[in-house]
């Protein structure tokens, strides 16, 4: 609200981005690769958080937006010969359009019906991808050639397959979406979203078109998730139908719950935490689904506010 707190909040987020940039030079190979992936998936989680955490809409179908970006850019490269920037934009457009259509339909429902409808739409997209396996590669997926993942600007060319480039590109995406989220949740629009989450009827009686606001939230969320999907395709060169499966609708929910819903940095913390827990655990056991399951139950039972939610409640009240 005040100038001082604005500076403090933006300073904190800039510091987080700076630390992540420094890690580019410090992390050993294995963790360097893992982090690049986590940054992209955390972006996915941030998109999910905007809708679930702030607007209070629990979707069980967000894999479809990630997949829209993934396939939008992947197919554009493979079949239309798009360059990297154009393919990225194609992914965003796919995500935005899909979110608009899904939003217009699904927002006629609420609560449990909204969850099931979003899940069904995601399932329909998955089945579509499988049905057109001639083009999409079905379960096998498509591998994007290295040559198609090089950005040429004038004479310079940037090769997204080089680990450092990949890391920095992932970080840029992450930072853009992080600051965009921060700006949104501190804006008047963000305040309206939270009001809708807290009490939709009251918000309507203050003169807000709650449907339009929720629709805007879905589209923004869809675009962020699609950006993550498109980046995933371009940075890691693989497009596969398992990213459209129910599992990838559940994972962002898990990451956000773990890190803290409705906190800007929660999605990053949650993704990091869950990723490393599963990574460490999988060196002892192959039963990683068990860990996901137990984590979900423990979180809803004992830490419904997540890591940063608890931190905000106890120590740092000003955390956005």
């Amino acid at each position: 609200m005040t100038e001082a707190s604005t500076a403090r909040v933006y300073g904190l987020h800039a510091a987080v981005v700076a630390v992540l940039f420094a890690l580019n030079f410090l992390l050993p190979d294995y963790h360097h690769g893992l982090f690049a992936r986590i940054l992209v998936l955390a972006t996915f989680a941030m998109g999910y958080n905007l809708l679930f955490g702030y607007a209070g809409l629990l979707s069980l179908g967000h894999a479809m937006f990630f997949a829209a970006g993934l396939y939008g850019s992947g197919l554009a490269i493979t079949y239309l010969g798009f360059g990297v920037p154009a393919a990225f934009i194609a992914g965003l457009v796919c995500g935005a359009l899909l979110a608009l259509v899904v939003g217009l339909l699904a927002l006629r429902t609420s609560g449990v019906a909204f969850m099931i409808v979003t899940m069904m739409f995601a399932q329909a997209l998955l089945l579509t991808i499988v049905y057109f396996n001639q083009w999409t590669g079905g379960d096998q997926g498509l591998v994007l050639q290295q040559a198609s993942r090089i950005v040429t600007i004038g004479n310079a060319s940037v090769d997204l397959t080089v680990p450092t480039v990949r890391y920095v590109a992932a970080l840029v995406l992450f930072a853009v979406v992080l600051f965009a989220t921060l700006a949104i949740v501190r804006s008047r629009f963000g305040r309206v979203l939270v009001a809708i989450r807290e009490n939709e009827e009251r918000t309507r009686m203050l003169g807000y078109d709650t449907f339009a606001n929720k629709l805007a939230a879905i589209v923004l969320s869809g675009v962020f998730c699609a950006a993550a999907g498109a980046a995933y395709a371009l940075l890691f060169g693989y497009v596969g139908s398992n990213f459209a499966s129910v599992q990838y609708s559940i994972l962002p929910l898990l990451w956000v719950l773990a890190g803290g819903a409705a906190t800007t940095l929660g999605p990053l913390i949650g993704t990091l935490f869950i990723y490393y827990v599963t990574d460490i655990a999988s060196s002892y056991t192959s039963a990683w689904l068990l860990i996901v399951g137990v984590a979900l139950i423990l979180l809803v039972l004992f830490a419904p506010k997540g890591i940063l939610g608890a931190v905000r409640k106890r120590w740092i009240r000003w955390l956005p």
Binding site: L58, G111, L253, V294, L296, V300, L301
Partner: peptide, 18 residues
Amino acid sequence: PEATIVATIGLLYIIQQL
């Protein structure tokens, strides 16, 4: 309702893995 959905998703994974 919402917490239950999340919890039963957890249960789903646990049973499947076991």
